[in-house]
């Protein structure tokens, strides 16, 4: 198996949905202090509490950045209630490579940030 499959390299080099949303409905930032990876996720929801727009920003390793990019694609149009229930194993499946225990924090950082945003208060309130 490839060390970094093409799909991960592609998302790392050409991240999707990278940026910020000016007035997000929900937002959160999380840092993996061990390696200094940082992810911010902004969400704009429609009135049915489904994701209308999602953006991520931050810096870090290929795994954390590709994971964030792939996750944002996956969450587009999804209802909040469903996002809350996404288990870590779905991220591993999405990445399609074996994640060592040392790198699991990198892989899961974006999911944890999204969950923090979803569970958090409305931005600017």
């Amino acid at each position: 198996m490839d060390l970094y499959p093409e799909i991960i390299l592609d998302h790392f080099k050409n991240p999707r949905n990278k940026g910020i949303i000016k007035n997000p409905t929900k937002t959160a930032e999380k840092e993996n202090t061990l390696c200094g990876d940082k992810i911010r996720i902004d969400l704009l929801l429609d009135k049915n509490k489904k994701v209308r727009k999602i953006r991520f920003s931050g810096e870090g390793c290929a795994i954390s950045q590709a994971s964030a990019s792939m996750l944002t694609e996956k969450l587009h149009g999804k209802p909040l209630s469903q996002i809350k229930k996404i288990p870590p194993k779905e991220i591993y499946k999405m990445l399609g490579i074996e994640i060592s225990p040392a790198r699991s924090k990198c892989a899961l950082l974006s999911l944890e940030t999204v969950k923090k945003a979803v569970n958090g208060r409305r931005h600017n309130q």
Binding site: L3, Y4, L34, C35, G36, D37, G60, C61, A62, I63, S64, R103, C106
Partner: peptide, 22 residues
Amino acid sequence: GIHPHDIATVFDDEGVAIRSGH
């Protein structure tokens, strides 16, 4: 443009044990 963790991962794949982090 390349995080030290990714560097260490590729090095390990080549049999080279190095450390990455703070």
